[in-house]
């Protein structure tokens, strides 16, 4: 498999003022294929979200080689977009203006923006809510806006930082189904960070387990469940076997 995104020997240490340095990533290696859905699970603070921010171009690693489509990564770009954990919607912007944020920053005219945002808002099932402000929406609706905003600039890579963590369990299940549907039609490369092993297995082609800080790739599991996935797969013996294996890798890394 030709890696679409590759990271080699990525090292990153945070040096917060008034505190000691924190090694976030140490010799971190990763390969993600084009169109692949890869999840990362790992203990809290292991640097998985940090790596997403590195890929997004917001944080520069101290050393290491990160390539996308063969080219070294340089700063933020519209070929990548992030879906944020706490949604990251601008509270003073309507649903439509939030979805169009990236397009606006690309300098697109409002008519063109509308042509892009309208079908997306329809796709996420929020037609009629274009003029609503985020505080008027439920958590699930907010995250669908976050997803639509990330898709609006038509990126090749979707980075998702525990996107469903702030949602209740039922909404989360529905959002997972929705995400898979969108991923299958839009054919994006997805890097998905989560704490939930079940969620990672259900969604992914492969699941990476990370060590505790400083984070390295510990083990990668290939998920051979057929696609399209459905909810019943979650109760199959294979699914539970995977869940157990991943948990066994992960539990040594977790300190309470």
């Amino acid at each position: 498999m030709q890696a679409y995104i590759s990271g080699r020997n990525v090292n990153l240490t945070f040096r917060p003022p008034n505190r000691g340095p924190v090694r976030a990533l140490q010799n971190f290696d990763i390969d993600i294929g084009e169109g692949e859905f890869l999840s990362i699970v790992g203990p809290s603070g292991c640097g998985k979200s940090t790596f997403l921010n590195v890929l997004l171009g917001l944080i520069k690693p101290d050393s290491g080689d990160i390539r996308m489509d063969g080219k070294p990564l340089a700063g933020p770009g519209t070929d990548r977009a992030m879906v944020f954990q706490e949604f990251g919607l601008l509270p003073w912007r309507t649903v439509q203006a939030n979805v169009e944020l990236g397009l606006e920053l690309k300098g697109m005219s409002s008519d063109t923006r509308r042509e892009v945002s309208q079908p997306l808002i329809e796709m996420i099932g929020l037609s009629g809510f274009e003029g609503h402000f985020p505080h008027e929406l439920s958590g699930g609706m907010k995250q669908r806006v976050g997803l639509a905003r990330a898709l609006a600039t038509d990126p090749n890579v979707l980075l998702m930082d525990e996107p469903f963590a702030a949602l209740d369990a039922q909404t989360r299940d529905l959002m997972q189904v929705e995400l898979l549907r969108i991923w299958q039609t839009a054919k994006k490369t997805v890097l998905f960070v989560t704490h939930q092993i079940e969620e990672a297995i259900y969604l992914s082609d492969r699941v990476m387990v990370m060590t505790k800080r400083p984070g390295r790739a510990k083990k990668i599991f290939k998920i051979d469940l057929p696609r399209p996935r459905d909810y019943e797969m979650r109760v199959t013996p294979e699914f539970n076997e995977l869940k157990l294996q991943i948990w066994n890798e992960l539990k040594d890394e977790i300190t309470v």
Binding site: L58, G75, T78, G88, L90, L101, L105, T153
Partner: peptide, 24 residues
Amino acid sequence: TLINVVRSFGASEWDVARLVVVPN
């Protein structure tokens, strides 16, 4: 977080001020 959101879309410091900092 909101500053990171607009930065991730390639916002300049001026855009950050205009879109996040001043409304906030």
